[in-house]
Design a protein around this nucleic acid. Structure first.
Length: 330
DNA sequence: CATCTGT
DNA sequence: CAGATG
């Protein structure tokens, strides 16, 4: 059914350049293991993406911060031929395509994909033949490759949310974040945040078993079907609404009560929105992260975390007009 | 940054 | 323990 590449439509005068630069960046990161070239390409894409006018030559591009000889040359080539030789080669390179495929299996990153390919393992079928080369996480990734590839309809998440809530002690707060909270009709996975009034950053030991208890309860009711990893504060695994449902990726994190709203805000995103909001906080003299909102003294050092009792508090404190999750999409 | 894994 | 992964 559904395939790969997300049709993310950009729209800036230089978006076509950004597109090939980010593709080059990914190639450098995943195939060559060159993090410097990777960074070089992405900063170039980044300056270009915010440049207000169309770049019409490599020479002009070169004036921008982060664009040097080599990228300028590629811009010229692209301007003249409408494509990039290097990119064509990459597309036709079987090693590259194999790595890109393997990397889609959760638990397999660029490093593991490299070694698999070097051992001649380049397809899902190959992986099936060599399960002995995979760890627990990767085995789950392989087993549910097709399921995990599927988007999750909002309504299904809603049902899962209710089911989870039904198995939590009343004291436990639950928020499903991510694109679901932003109102999207589909999501890639389910990102749940929970907290409990007795579990705070000052008494982190207190509800030490809370997460594990929740996970076993959800296992017993049949919702959680696989555990990828489980620690004191973070669970990663899979769940299935009922007998004939598709298996879905589910993450649950336990956050201290006093940091819950910063976490909810952060994990709701979007990434773009978070960046804007953090920037605004900085201008207003605060530093905002996934845990706390703190005033920044003119000395430059952050003070004590402000007490936050809602997401709104955070907006109010930094004088940022409140946005409903639905309009935090960019 | 939390968790897992292999050395 | 370092390195990989999400």
């Amino acid at each position: 059914m559904g395939k790969r590449k997300a049709p993310s439509r950009e729209n800036t005068p230089n978006s076509d350049f950004c597109e090939f630069l980010t593709e080059l960046a990914e190639y450098e990161k995943n195939v060559s293991r060159n993090i410097h070239k990777y960074n070089a390409y992405r900063k170039a894409a980044s300056v270009l993406s915010s440049h207000p006018t169309r770049i019409t030559s490599g020479q002009e591009a070169k004036k921008l911060n982060g664009i040097g000889e080599k990228i300028a040359k590629k811009i010229d080539e692209f301007l003249q031929t409408g494509k990039l030789q290097k990119l064509d080669n990459i597309h036709n390179d079987s090693k590259t395509t194999a790595i890109n495929l393997l990397t889609q299996v959760t638990g397999i990153g660029p490093a593991k994909a490299q070694t698999l390919v070097s051992e001649g393992i380049t397809s899902l079928e190959d992986l099936e033949k060599h399960k002995d080369k995979l760890n627990h996480h990767q085995l789950i990734g392989l087993k549910y490759y097709h399921d995990f590839q599927q988007k999750i309809p909002r309504n299904e998440i809603k049902q899962i949310e209710n089911l989870i809530r039904g198995h939590l002690e009343p004291q436990i707060h639950l928020t499903i974040c991510g694109s679901y909270r932003r109102g999207k009709q589909q999501s890639g996975d389910i990102d749940a945040l929970i907290t409990h009034p007795n579990y705070t950053s000052s008494q982190p030991k207190k509800k030490q078993n809370l997460l594990k208890n929740v996970v076993t309860a959800l296992q017993n009711c049949g919702l959680i079907t696989e555990i990828i990893s489980l620690g004191d504060t973070k669970f990663m695994g899979a769940c299935k609404l009922d007998k004939n449902s598709i298996t879905r990726r589910l993450d649950i994190r336990l956050t201290p009560f006093d940091q819950y709203f910063c976490a909810v805000l952060y994990f709701t995103g979007s990434d773009m929105f978070n960046k804007q909001m953090r920037a605004h906080a900085l201008d207003a003299g605060f530093t905002l992260n996934e845990y706390t909102l703190r005033p920044v003294g003119s000395t430059g050092v952050p003070g004590e975390p402000l007490e936050i009792h809602s997401e709104r508090d955070i907006f109010d404190c930094i004088g940022f007009p409140y946005k409903e999750p639905q309009d935090r999409n960019q």
